[in-house]
Amino acid sequence: MTRALNPPNSLELNNWLRGAAQKDALAFRQLYEASAPRLYGLALRILRRRELAEEALQESFVSIWHHAGEYQAGLSAPLTWMTAIVRNKSFDLLRRMQADVEIDGEDFDEAVLASLRDPRANPAEALELSSEAKALANCMAALEEKHRHVIGLAFFHDLSHGDVARRLALPLGTVKTWIRRSLARLQSCLTGQGAA
Rank of each mutant, 00 (worst) to 15 (best):
C189H: 11
N15W: 00
S130H: 03
R3S: 01
L172K: 03
E59G: 07
A99N: 13
E128C: 10
L170W: 00
A165W: 02
L113V: 15
G162H: 13
E54T: 08
G192R: 15
D92T: 07
F91Q: 07
A196I: 15
A4S: 14
A195I: 03
W178Q: 13
L26G: 14
S188L: 10
A43W: 01
A84E: 02
L17E: 05
A73F: 07
I103G: 09
K134H: 11
T80R: 12
A165M: 03
R181L: 05
D118F: 13
Y32Q: 05
F28R: 00
L39N: 03
L190R: 09
E59V: 00
A21N: 10
A137G: 15
L39A: 03
E106S: 15
L129C: 03
L172P: 08
T174V: 01
G192Q: 12
L52K: 01
M140S: 11
L172T: 05
L129W: 02
V62A: 06
V175D: 00
D100V: 09
E145H: 12
T177C: 07
A165C: 09
R50K: 15
T83R: 00
H66F: 15
M140L: 12
T191A: 14
R18S: 06
L168E: 06
L26A: 11
P37R: 04
E128V: 11
T174F: 00
I179L: 05
R185N: 13
L93T: 02
L116C: 11
A25S: 13
Q98K: 15
Q187T: 10
L94Y: 04
R29P: 09
E106N: 15
Q30C: 08
A20I: 14
Q187P: 08
N88S: 06
H67V: 06
L183Y: 01
F156Q: 10
L47D: 02
G69I: 04
L168V: 06
S60V: 01
S188F: 12
S160N: 14
S130P: 10
A4I: 05
D118E: 10
R117T: 00
S182P: 10
E125S: 11
W178A: 10
V86E: 11
R38A: 08
F28N: 09
T191Y: 03
R49G: 05
L57W: 00
F156M: 09
L44K: 15
D109K: 03
A124S: 11
L39Y: 05
R45K: 04
I151D: 04
W16Y: 00
R38Q: 06
R166L: 11
